[in-house]
């Protein structure tokens, strides 16, 4: 071994190089390039124009709000469905095997297909609307509605399997004995769930929440097809700007969107820190 390799000061960066170097090259590099790009005018001079546009134009501000809304709302709804669902598929019931295979299907369906499916099936005058019309019912407005209910439904439909998959395994990783121990110590089923199982499953739930949040916040196809044309999220506006060839604007929007995604994540962490932190020091055996 050469002497230089034995020198710890040299060895450390060398050992870190594959990991940190990879991050710098494939994550830091493009990020830095996009950031620099967002501060340039066509002639290369420095400008804040692109950022000013984001924070002064009503469409952009609304887009930012819409992006966060489309990120957060589906996650909340999905979580409310996924947690009970993952508890249910832990139990034995007739047809469980078939169900636990079927519920994963949406994972394989691309967002754009989901969007089109919503249009065909849930649009007023669409498949379901026509099917229930003879019964005197009509579907509420789900497509292009101001609250983006269609977008949220589509995202939820797509997220639930992924979330359920992760949360199910998070719950499954909790030893049965710990559940039993809680019961023997006087905790009811519900209390055991809230005080023992949820905190222990928190890392899994957090991972599911973060991944789906980032996914739906950045999704383009579903809000573009199903969402209202009035409130367009930044992802959709970015593509519009890209089509205009305004790359610095696209970069700036990407920066702002990323910054807000990080902000939401930080807020989430500080909200769940008590549960998450307690577990962080624990160790599910």
């Amino acid at each position: 071994m050469p002497a230089s390799l034995r020198d710890r000061r040299l060895l450390l960066p060398l050992l870190l190089a594959p990991g940190v170097g990879y991050l710098l090259l494939f994550f830091g590099g493009p990020l830095a390039a996009a950031f620099i790009g967002s501060l340039r005018l066509e002639d290369g001079s420095f400008t804040l124009t692109w950022y000013i546009r984001i924070f002064t134009r009503p469409s952009m501000l609304r887009g930012l709000g819409t992006s966060i809304y489309y990120g957060v709302a589906p996650v909340i709804v999905s979580l409310l469905v996924s947690v009970p669902l993952s508890l249910a598929i832990r139990r034995h019931f007739p047809g469980r095997k078939l169900f636990s295979g079927l519920y994963k299907l949406p994972l394989a369906v691309p967002g754009i297909i989901v969007g089109l499916m919503i249009i065909v099936v849930f649009e007023r005058g669409g498949f379901i609307d026509r099917a229930v019309a003879p019964l005197g019912f009509g579907l509420p407005k789900l497509v292009r509605d101001d609250w983006g209910v269609g977008v949220i439904l589509a995202s939820v439909w797509k997220q639930i399997p992924f979330m359920t998959l992760i949360i199910t395994s998070a719950f499954a990783a909790i030893p049965e004995d710990i559940r039993s121990a809680s019961r023997t110590l006087g905790a009811s089923r519900l209390t055991t769930f809230l005080r023992v199982e949820v905190p222990l499953a928190m890392p899994g739930i957090t991972a599911a929440v973060l991944l789906t949040f980032i996914g739906s916040m950045g999704s383009y196809a579903i809000p573009d097809i199903v969402g209202p044309p009035t409130a367009r999220p930044l992802s959709v506006l970015m593509v519009a700007e890209f089509n205009q060839g305004r790359f610095p604007q696209v970069f700036a929007m990407g920066m702002v969107l990323s910054a807000f995604a990080v902000a939401v994540l930080v807020a989430y962490y500080s909200l769940t820190s008590r549960i998450g932190d307690a577990h962080g020091r624990g160790d599910a055996r």
Binding site: I119, E123, R124, G125, D224, I225, V226, G227, P229, T230
Partner: peptide, 18 residues
Amino acid sequence: AELTNGNADTLNLINNRQ
């Protein structure tokens, strides 16, 4: 009026008799 998401969206809504 209804603001739609695109050329095809408008035609689709006409087709749906909406």
